[in-house]
């Protein structure tokens, strides 16, 4: 098994307030890894720190064997480390098509633009119909589709998704998880941050449970799902 990305002993926070303590994780090639935990434990902060939107206080991020900790977020993205951020963060004044174009801004993804466009339109036929619509006027579900599709347009080597299911209708959540399964089958390496712990554990290969800014439990997802502590605290069983 090859490790595509490694996060080693990350500590970070905002101003004086420390949020993360010595967080380490590994993403294996072609695997879907999930990161679960309650509200406010620092999941989003971890993803932002990995991308460099928040500066790490300690630790490093190794991507394809190289230390990329200090690189600017746009450089990381153009090397294939892509984040679908929490709250979607779309270009709401631009059309769906333009959002997808912006996803393919870097050189590596521009070359296969049309191929990738067809692929995401096939995954989300809805977006093809809405291609020229201003993204800000789409429904929440459609916006989440644009967010994922825009990330995929970057041709990521690692796709990190922050809160895929938040605020969406149950049938849509099922659809999106189906897409995740399909991407996993195609061999995409993913890190999924989810509040829907049950679904995240069901779909992923490996899981990390974060509590209070530290990794509390980690292991193959089925083992984590069987863990008594996890069952009590997160699955309500």
């Amino acid at each position: 098994m090859t490790t595509v990305m490694e996060v080693n002993g990350i500590a970070s926070g905002y101003g004086e307030v420390q949020i993360l303590w010595n967080v380490s994780l590994k993403l294996e090639k072609g695997k879907l890894t999930s990161l679960v935990g309650s509200n406010g434990v620092g999941k989003t902060t971890l993803l932002k720190t990995i991308m460099g939107l928040v500066k790490p206080w300690q630790g490093n991020v190794v991507f394809h064997g190289k230390d990329i900790t200090g690189l600017a977020p746009h450089t990381k993205a153009s090397q294939g480390l892509v984040l679908v951020p929490e709250g979607r963060q779309l270009f709401t004044d631009m059309s769906v098509y333009e959002n997808l174009e912006m996803g393919a801004f870097s050189k590596r993804s521009k070359a296969n633009f049309h191929q990738n466009l067809e692929k995401v339109y096939d995954m989300f036929p809805r977006l093809k119909e809405r291609a020229s619509q201003k993204t800000g006027t789409l429904s929440g579900g459609e916006q989440q589709m644009v967010a994922v599709a825009r990330g995929l347009m970057s041709e990521p080597d690692v796709l990190m998704i922050d809160e895929l299911s938040l605020g969406l209708a149950p049938f849509l959540v099922l659809d999106l998880f189906e897409i995740l399964r399909r991407l996993r089958k195609e061999g995409l390496t993913m890190l999924l941050v989810e509040q829907n712990v049950q679904m995240a554990l069901a779909v992923s290969d490996y899981a990390y449970v974060v509590a209070d800014g530290r990794v509390e439990i980690e292991g193959p997802s089925n083992e984590v799902a069987a863990n008594a502590k996890v069952r009590e605290a997160y699955l309500g069983i």
């Binding site: 746009h74 993205a77 892509v82 963060q89 779309l90 270009f91 631009m94 912006m102 801004f105």
Partner: peptide
């Protein structure tokens, strides 16, 4: 592309960075 990048940065600077646009 650079013109669209300007509009993207105007719209959401952090998201533009995340998409590989040098803000």
């Amino acid at each position: 592309p650079p013109g669209k990048a300007i509009r993207a940065v105007a719209n959401n600077r952090a998201a533009a960075e995340l998409m590989g646009i040098p803000a």
